[in-house]
Computed example of a mutant assay.
Amino acid sequence: MRILLVDDEALARERLAGLIAELGAPYRVVGEAVNGEDSLKFCAQQGVDLVLMDIRMPGMDGLEAAGRLAGFETPPAVIFTTAYEEHALEAFEREAQDYLLKPVRRERLRQALERSRRITRPQRETLGRVEREKIPQLSVSYRGGVLSLSFDEVIYLRADSKYIAVRHGAGEALLEDTLKSLEDRYADWLLRIHRNALVVRRRLKGLERGADGKMQVVLNGCEERLEVSRRHLPEVRRWLKGAPDG
């Protein structure tokens, strides 16, 4: 994987280059740039698979550069590296693969690089030419950083104190929101099974009765069973039978 480092601070580029060298193949730094303009020039002249991009830089910032890179015929994946958490939402609106907070830790970088490899270069070329299905994304807190999860990766969401625990294929993350707000915004994707839990509809596999006699949902990609309240049980059964909601 050919990687371009974009940051106006030489020490930040040096640290990232060192971490990538420690991770080794298939990751390889092929160039560095100090601002958005230089990153566009480099990507236009040489094939790059991934750009590790700072956000606040003199001249063209990282957000504008990422927006322009997305318009390339063969756009590279972009992972933002920044000390500022408040840009996360806008970053994911620019279709960033991930968002790493400085100082970037090696394990967190490794996870972000592995996630970016799931979209191959040929796939990115195709995505740059045709309209693709818009799968909703959630920006969640994960191991000191911010992570973008698509609903293809999410299994369920459960209220946990003042946060929402988001269970996904690789573990669990936290989201500051309410179940009601999420249910309203993503009604086509989420189904209420309990006052404290929503599940991704396509993850529903079946129902079973627990040892306490209460009904539980069986979910694809998850061994855990979640209780279904009597109030929401009819709707869950309708969905499993393929009947329209309501």
Rank of each mutant, 00 (worst) to 15 (best):
M1Q: 09
M1A: 15
L4Y: 06
L5P: 07
V6W: 00
D8Y: 04
L11P: 02
R13N: 11
L16E: 02
I20T: 03
I20S: 01
I20F: 04
I20P: 00
E22C: 03
V30K: 04
G31R: 00
E32T: 08
A33W: 01
F42G: 14
C43G: 08
C43L: 04
Q45D: 14
G47F: 11
G47T: 10
R56F: 04
P58Y: 07
D61C: 06
D61H: 08
A66R: 00
A70T: 07
G71M: 11
F72T: 06
T74L: 14
A77W: 00
T81Q: 03
A83Q: 06
A83M: 01
Q97A: 15
D98R: 05
L100G: 03
R105G: 14
R108H: 08
L109S: 08
P122K: 01
P122Q: 04
R124V: 03
E125N: 09
T126K: 13
T126I: 15
L127H: 10
R129I: 07
R129E: 13
R129W: 10
R129V: 05
R129P: 03
E131A: 13
P136E: 07
G144Y: 05
S148Q: 04
L149R: 06
D152G: 14
I155T: 09
L157R: 00
R158I: 13
S161W: 10
K162Y: 09
A165P: 01
A165S: 13
V166S: 07
R167V: 07
R167N: 05
A170C: 04
G171S: 06
G171E: 03
A173T: 04
L174C: 05
L174G: 04
L182E: 04
R185F: 01
W189G: 03
R192V: 07
L198N: 05
V199D: 11
R202H: 14
R202A: 15
L204S: 02
L204R: 04
G206M: 07
L207F: 06
G210E: 14
M215P: 01
L219D: 07
E224D: 14
R225H: 09
L226C: 10
L226G: 08
S229L: 08
R230H: 11
R231H: 11
P234Q: 09
R237A: 15
R237N: 10
A243T: 02
P244H: 08
